[in-house]
């Protein structure tokens, strides 16, 4: 066995994989969040739809996204494998176990929290990503007045199709954009109460998962230092356990209530 496989098959190495993939996924969350904030823009979804086109066509981003999918799968399945492996380390369970006395609930339930998130990701991807890439997402024509910024949107017929995801034309002061309308899928989807509920539950799970996971990743990489722990905790809790899940949960709620 060479040293790399030896390292990554040790208990510490496997945890390092979890930490590195986890932090990579955290970085994606920020980008995803920032991009999706465009859903709240009052432009009938134009900016969001443009962003969707950009994310699915830019070669660099496309490559990164495949890396991301791999990381999700790796993180999830390595995590599940570790849960089972760790269970084997205690074949006979305690009859009385008082975990809350010595550790945070989230830290003991990363596997369950992760599984909820994985289920969520599957639903989420099949609803939007799969639909967008392989399904039939209708097109919308946006007519934008460059001077006033006024936007008018018209749904294209359901059977309308074209070769690219987006085409832009300028006619004087008017800029016409015909684009796959993912925004409309979002709008429609989030009228379903069960989907909204799933999203909110998943974001709660994400919050707890990251509450422990973010700082745990640094501990695994060996970073536990009184000078930096404050910053790590601040980002881990403030950004990843509170802001991001609330931000993401706000989206389905917003469309459901709207």
């Amino acid at each position: 066995m060479n040293w790399i496989t030896k390292m990554f098959s040790s208990s510490l190495g496997q945890k390092l994989i979890m930490a590195l993939t986890g932090l990579f996924l955290c970085s994606f969350l920020i980008i995803h969040m920032v991009g999706n904030l465009q859903l709240f823009k009052h432009d009938a979804g134009l900016a969001f739809n443009k962003y969707a086109v950009f994310m699915t066509t830019n070669p660099l981003i496309k490559t990164t996204s495949y890396l991301l999918y791999a990381a999700i799968l790796f993180h999830a399945f390595k995590g599940i494998a570790l849960v089972f492996q760790n269970k084997k380390a205690r074949p006979v369970k305690y009859q009385a176990f008082d975990g809350k006395a010595n550790s945070h609930w989230s830290s003991r339930n990363m596997g369950i929290l992760g599984t909820i998130i994985l289920v969520f990701i599957a639903v989420h991807m099949s609803n939007f990503w799969w639909q967008y890439k392989f399904g039939t997402v209708p097109y919308t024509r946006y007519t934008e007045n460059i001077q006033t910024g006024e936007i008018q949107s018209d749904y294209m017929p359901d059977n309308f199709t074209m070769n690219s995801k987006m085409e832009e034309q300028s006619e004087g002061l008017m800029k016409v954009t015909i684009v796959k309308d993912l925004f409309r899928s979002v709008e429609l989807g989030f009228k379903e109460i069960w989907l909204v509920a799933l999203y909110i539950i998943a974001m709660a799970a994400l919050s707890f998962h990251l509450y422990h996971g973010f700082k745990s990743a640094f501990q695994t990489m060996g970073l536990n230092h009184k000078k930096y722990n404050g910053a790590i905790n601040f980002i881990g809790i403030g950004v990843f356990a509170i802001l991001i899940p609330i931000g993401f949960a706000a989206m389905p709620l917003y469309f459901f209530i709207k």
Partner: peptide
């Protein structure tokens, strides 16, 4: 022994 999940217990 199992792997560490940094629960702090």
């Amino acid at each position: 022994f199992g792997a560490c999940t940094n629960t702090g217990a």
